[in-house]
């Protein structure tokens, strides 16, 4: 077990180093952009998984990203907030709103929770479209300020955004990992397995479910804020229902049961459309097909692949041995 832990630690260090090298030596804006997209989606899919630890499959994520993006953009544009403060407020506000809607939503369990969480996306998108005076309505926002420079660092190049997002991603993953392996994470998992039993040993299951939902919401809002200052333009439907479904697909395809699952899922499924350009217009279809194959054939997700292959090899080796013997 501890050798596996060491291997995991080593692999993480190598991956981080590789990403730093990419940032230092890759200059192509397109490739850097793809990397930035991957890192954003890694954080989103991982935060969705954090919510899922407590047994809740949320489809509210797009709404929280939209909320974070518009909050950060508007605070910086209309109230002259420093972009960094705006970004933080965006995350905190998305977390708070998650907390507020979490109480009514968690009254419903399991698939019923999932069903009602969809509402949130629609309400946020509708509100942004209708509140034209503030949000620019359907035409969106332009010229959102880039992050303020400091210590001589200017946020103009893709490279600078790459490193900013790298730091955001690493910090977010570190926090989520620390939560998961803590007593809090254990409590989430306990609630997922048997919520009546958890309640009977004095665990405030509603409180912990809302906590998971709020932490997930915080990271969704943070990524939304980053996106606003990175792309510098927003439109209300960018993070709608479809976007939310994609985040869910990253998580499920990678594997919701393991910390690495959403990371793998978000990475592969962001790279796939880029390398398979000719299939571009069929991408949603391809995604759906992959999702269904995974659910039918490998419900634990791609993270389970090595183990399955291992078992398969061992079995064929054994069959061959049997035939030989």
């Amino acid at each position: 077990m501890s050798s596996r832990k060491a291997a995991g630690f080593g692999a993480t260090i190598l991956l981080v180093l590789a990403l730093v090298l990419v940032g230092l030596f890759v200059k192509g804006p397109y490739i850097l952009h793809v990397f930035i997209l991957i890192m954003m989606r890694v954080v989103l899919a991982s935060s969705l998984r954090l919510i899922n630890l407590s047994g809740q499959l949320s489809l509210a994520h797009g709404g929280l990203v939209t909320l974070g993006a518009y909050t950060s953009a508007l605070l910086a544009m209309k109230l002259g907030f420093s972009t960094w403060l705006a970004l933080l407020v965006a995350g905190v506000l998305a977390g708070l709103v998650s907390c507020l809607i979490g109480f009514p939503f968690t009254r419903l369990k399991g698939i019923y929770f999932t069903m009602v969480s969809i509402f949130f996306v629609q309400i946020i998108v509708l509100t942004v479209q209708q509140w034209r005076g503030l949000t620019g309505g359907a035409s969106g926002l332009y010229n959102i300020p880039r992050p303020d420079g400091f210590w001589g660092i200017e946020f103009k190049s893709k490279t600078s955004f790459f490193f900013l997002m790298l730091i955001v991603m690493l910090a977010s993953l570190l926090i989520m990992w620390a939560i998961e392996r803590s007593r809090v994470g254990m409590t989430f998992l306990g609630i997922r397995q048997a919520d009546s039993l958890a309640e009977s040993v004095g665990i405030n299951t509603t409180g912990f479910k809302v906590l998971a939902f709020s932490i997930g919401g915080f990271f969704a809002g943070l990524v939304g804020g980053f996106y606003a200052h990175y792309v510098s333009a927003l439109d209300p439907t960018a993070f709608g229902f479809l976007f939310t479904i994609y985040i869910l697909i990253y998580m499920i395809v990678g594997g919701a049961g393991a910390f690495a699952g959403p990371i793998i899922g978000a990475t592969l499924l962001t790279v796939l459309p880029e390398v398979a350009r000719p299939l571009e217009s069929y991408m949603p279809f391809v995604f759906a097909a992959i999702l269904m194959l995974i659910i039918f054939l490998m419900p634990e997700g791609l993270v389970g692949l090595p183990q399955r292959l291992n078992r398969l090899f061992r079995k064929t080796a054994k069959d061959q041995a049997d035939v030989a013997g």
């Binding site: 254990m186 998992l189 306990g190 048997a194 039993l197 958890a198 040993v201 299951t205």
Partner: peptide
């Protein structure tokens, strides 16, 4: 959970353990 913290704790007939945890972790939680 508030009744539990007042000091009344029950056992269940079904779903009476945290199935994915080890026995020790059941008691830690």
């Amino acid at each position: 959970h508030r009744i539990a913290s007042a000091g009344i704790v029950r056992s269940f007939q079904q779903d009476n353990v945290f199935a994915e945890f080890t026995v020790l972790d059941n008691l830690r939680l």
